[in-house]
Design a binder for these strands. Sequence first.
DNA 1: GATGAATGAGATTTCATTCAT
DNA 2: AATGAATGAAATCTCATTCAT
Lengths: 198, 198, 198, 198
Amino acid sequence: MTDRSIAPADKRTRILDAAIRVFAEHGYHGARVGDIAEDAGVAHGLLYHYFASKDDVLRTIFLENWGALIARFRAVEAADEPAPEKLEGIAKILLRTWRNDPALVTVMVREVARSQQLQDRVDEVREAFAIVQRVIEEGQAAGDFRADLDPRLASWIFYGGLEEVLTGWVLGQLPDSEEDVGQAERVAVEIVFRGLAV
Amino acid sequence: MTDRSIAPADKRTRILDAAIRVFAEHGYHGARVGDIAEDAGVAHGLLYHYFASKDDVLRTIFLENWGALIARFRAVEAADEPAPEKLEGIAKILLRTWRNDPALVTVMVREVARSQQLQDRVDEVREAFAIVQRVIEEGQAAGDFRADLDPRLASWIFYGGLEEVLTGWVLGQLPDSEEDVGQAERVAVEIVFRGLAV
Amino acid sequence: MTDRSIAPADKRTRILDAAIRVFAEHGYHGARVGDIAEDAGVAHGLLYHYFASKDDVLRTIFLENWGALIARFRAVEAADEPAPEKLEGIAKILLRTWRNDPALVTVMVREVARSQQLQDRVDEVREAFAIVQRVIEEGQAAGDFRADLDPRLASWIFYGGLEEVLTGWVLGQLPDSEEDVGQAERVAVEIVFRGLAV
Amino acid sequence: MTDRSIAPADKRTRILDAAIRVFAEHGYHGARVGDIAEDAGVAHGLLYHYFASKDDVLRTIFLENWGALIARFRAVEAADEPAPEKLEGIAKILLRTWRNDPALVTVMVREVARSQQLQDRVDEVREAFAIVQRVIEEGQAAGDFRADLDPRLASWIFYGGLEEVLTGWVLGQLPDSEEDVGQAERVAVEIVFRGLAV
DNA sequence: GATGAATGAGATTTCATTCAT
DNA sequence: AATGAATGAAATCTCATTCAT
């Protein structure tokens, strides 16, 4: 979530930041450990001083950053607000992250979220969906949301809509100016709340 | 779209089918050319008789199958129906494909959709979004859909919601019985049409 | 020795001619059996009907053509002329062959003459040197040539000078117009006969 | 130019030396990267640490050693001697190199001199001929050499005669004892200077 | 902590050769 | 005779990881 373009910091952090940049640009498999080290300005051997493996670097990126995201989701969930506002809050967090750190989002969206293997990741991602699902259930219980729609499916669809917008930005196919991000937020929330129909 | 478990067919097709299976199971990078050949029951050299490279196999899978999907989308678009029915038709095609060919969907969702490189893919994918977008615009013009929402963003959100459901199935995190698929279809369409709000 | 640019003839000959062209252009190792077949306008499997292997094609090219050359050398050797004229005759044959069939000469010079392996070749090449050597010895015996120089070494040096000129033509580093070929002949013979010294 | 049979030295040099040995024995195409590494006593991967490819190894061998040869030629050219002595000096360098490093000569004569591609090589080889040519022209201007013979052709013929002797040694067809080398030198120079004719 | 030379498992790709038709 | 799909041995090259310094 920090500005990845300047790079003082300790070397572990520099490696992590470099990895995010390199993974974002070439994908996990296309990224060489040497590329990351070069980008970080360290010898590639050093990477193994801080991390167990290339995969561990990705795992660490995911864990540290997804954890932060989840924490913010949890804060929203715990807030004393109606469910619709909470859902809107979650959408905002997800989409605003893009503006702060596109490379990170690229990695999260492309490399991590889809990755089957590592149970770690799956568990953590599941937790995000669970929060959204609980918020929806809360809204249904409070009479704010329709009760005839399965909250689990609804949470996936909601999340998917937002992630696709992120993907559009990642692929450079959707405009992502400050204003566009705001509009995307509005459209996403509107669709999920009130639908396209007149 | 055919049953991938039996294997008469010509060898080129067998290789392609095997590749879909193997890519689905291990991912593109985790799949070895030898695995594909073995699964297809041919010598691995034959793969290079029909395809230029491993990457060309993936590209071919994408092109041939996405092309078929697009053709069906186009047919829906051209049909003499109101826009909402068309959107529903597209959702059905996308979600039903899963039941017909989970492995193919896995590959399309995991390996292709996210793959940056290859302009080929991007162009073709763009076309799918364009169709959805045109249908939405048609609905807006006909007064069936709200005109205050950007149709482009709406098309991405709509597609994303569906793709996430597919992903849930691919990852084994959402139930995917015949009945579940039908329900997912309904929920997705309902959310996008009428929204979660009461 | 035939004109390699037109190609009626039987298929065996077409394959041999194509091989000379392809070997000349890409070298033996750089030439694929498929290239030869394509150039000959036949299926590559047919090559194995006429020849035992790719190597056998090269061997055949060498044997058939080198044999013809040797035959002409022998004719010169047997002629009723003084040794100097014979040597001049050999030089002419060697250099004139270039104008008739550059591709063939390229293959002979680059692929065959240097190739260690095949004993066939070595034996045949040895025979050419032996002829030159005998002519020199004949000249020495007749008092036409100095007797203080080892005839064997002299034959190698003589042949080497000529072959280097061929190489210059093959590499496109020496001009090879009709006139240039004549001049090369004269210079080579002059040097070997009377030397550079005034 | 060093003794290739002992092997302390840094690993890059060991790889280069091993490559010369292996190329000499099996030819460039017959030599496997693994053979070179094994001969050098290193893992084959290390070869790629120092060189971009197998071809780059050959190119490096050529460039470094031909460069050294050229330097010696240049020194001879610059010396304050009559042209005939210079030509003799060049012949000596070329032929003596054989005794110092037969494997290197084998590679240079068989693999490099004939290799078309790579402009690098051609340029460097051209320079050697240019030196010989200039020496001949110098001799002609000084009245030491006949002026009626084209110096360029003469340089090729001179060089070719010497190279053929090297080839004879490489192929094991000419005797190459210390004494033979001396004789070859004398015969080559005699022929080119005074010719075979009485 | 830091470096980068060194390792070697492993993957893709090539292509001569075979053989059923 | 002719074809070209099919085979599979073999070779180059990559790159994550280790480790001596």
